[in-house]
Design a binder for these strands. Structure first.
Length: 397
RNA sequence: CGGGGUGUAAUUCAUCGGUAGAAUGCUCGGUUCGGGACCGAGAUGUAGAGAGUUCAAUUCUCUCCACCCCGACCA
């Protein structure tokens, strides 16, 4: 992608209303623009990051046998009335058509996926079944905050599964938890599996995937000896119940994912039955857009963002000086390397500052000084090397 | 929804009871080109909205709106 032909621009100063790091940097570096409180446009760079995160999530969900679909954002009110959500969920956005029919925006998709699954689950042979999609969610939060970390509209992967009995459910639940840990690991994050209440969703314990960060909203306690972690808004405990010798430490964290045992609540609401038995259902969410915000919170320095390689919008940021770089850009592109090419006539200093701000993991420079070599520098290092094009391509593949 | 803060150009800000300013950005021309370089020229505004006071309001008063922060909320 050519810098000069793309609709993003970096700002010398972040907008003054931005206080949270992810808000500041994502706007300043040209990844997002705010439309209103809690609602953002993702510009080409930001959109690419969302797609990268989505793709990793997609691969891991596919790997545990879930099938990807795409369900609507606009829902008929009756589905929500059937489960009681229409009256009990205060964050549900409701709207009315010209003909005075009531609709809801997708706060979540249990109300849509359960009737869908009912059509495909006709016998015990059809179980277990797992379906997921990546779709926008709408929640009428009283107060949006922290940039893209708590929006009223946000991108989420939500998966749903149905099982003949509790044992089978528990097996898949465990598998899903492991898949989640793989996802977060690939995103460069350390997510703690955290015990929490299931809200009004379920009376059972649910698990949240929490990433330690001051900009998060969750208050957790984690054990310094084992992997035990609990949401202290939900529970009151003072010693580690898992390993006994560990001390519980307080921390703030951001919830990037969660898994729930929904029991038979939705199966019953929509009369989804197999041989007279209501299947056990689970739901599993990952906040794609929030995770993007959390990654910026975790990976930045005084100069800008430092994207993990796995979700960087581009593999390399090619800086052309003295009008050079065109040939290298074409060759890299032909070798399937994702390149952001700064082909503008801005000063060298401004180009470098932009490269640091945008945070692509590898910066390449082609100038009079580099001759027939290419300068190679990683965003999180000061080491500068001069390499042949072949060596550059080899490193990037 | 309670409390606090802020609304003037794309961004950051100044100004002031007498009808709009700077820096950055943008456009054009030129010099540059290794850390936001320089010279010259130019375009850019319903001063958040409405009402009131006044000869005159961006400025004072009131109401509303928007955004940010704290809290509540976040099945």
């Amino acid at each position: 992608m050519r810098y000069s032909q793309t609709i993003f621009k970096t700002l010398k100063q972040a907008p003054k209303e931005a206080e949270t790091v992810n808000h500041k940097l994502l706007v300043q570096a040209g990844f997002v623009r705010q439309l209103m409180a809690g609602v953002y446009t993702y510009l080409p760079l930001g959109h690419r990051v969302l797609n990268k995160i989505s793709q990793i999530v997609r691969e891991e969900m596919d790997a545990i046998g879930s099938q990807e679909v795409l369900m609507p954002m606009l829902h008929p009110a009756e589905n929500w009335k059937k489960t009681g959500g229409w009256d009990s969920i205060d964050v549900l956005f409701k709207l009315q058509s010209r003909t005075k029919k009531d609709y809801a925006l997708s706060q979540s998709h249990e109300e849509v996926v359960t009737p869908l699954a009912k059509e495909f689950i006709n016998s015990a042979k059809d179980l277990p079944l797992s379906i997921y999609h990546i779709q926008w969610k709408f929640r009428d939060e009283l107060r949006s905050k922290s940039g893209i970390m708590r929006g009223r509209e946000f991108l989420m992967k939500d998966m749903y599964s149905w099982h003949l009995n509790q044992e089978d459910f528990d097996k898949y639940y465990q598998k899903a938890k492991e898949a989640y840990l793989k996802v977060f690991k690939r995103l460069g994050l350390v997510a703690k599996v955290t015990e929490a209440s299931g809200g009004s969703f379920t009376e059972k314990v649910s698990y949240e995937f929490e990433v330690l960060t001051d900009s998060g909203e969750a208050n957790i306690m984690y054990c310094d000896k084992c992997d035990y972690c609990v949401n202290i808004d939900d529970f009151k405990k003072d010693s580690c119940p898992k390993c006994a010798e560990g001390l519980l430490r307080k921390a703030t964290a951001a919830e990037v994912g969660n898994v729930f045992d929904l029991g038979q609540k939705y199966s019953k609401a929509f009369d989804l039955k197999v041989d007279g038995v209501y299947p056990i259902m689970g739901c599993y969410g990952i906040g794609i857009s929030r995770t993007m915000g959390v990654i910026v919170e975790k990976f930045h320095d005084a100069k800008g963002i430092v994207w993990p390689k796995s979700i960087s919008p581009f593999a390399v940021h090619l800086v052309g000086l003295n009008g050079l770089g065109e040939e290298v850009y074409k060759k890299l592109t032909a070798s399937d390397v994702e390149v952001l090419f700064d082909d503008t006539d801005k000063s060298a200093g401004e180009k470098f500052a932009n490269a640091d701000l945008i945070g692509i993991p590898v910066r390449l420079v082609v100038s009079e000084k580099t001759g027939d070599k290419i300068e190679y520098k990683e965003r999180n290092s000061d080491k500068i090397e001069f390499l042949d094009l072949e060596e550059v391509i080899r490193r990037l593949n």
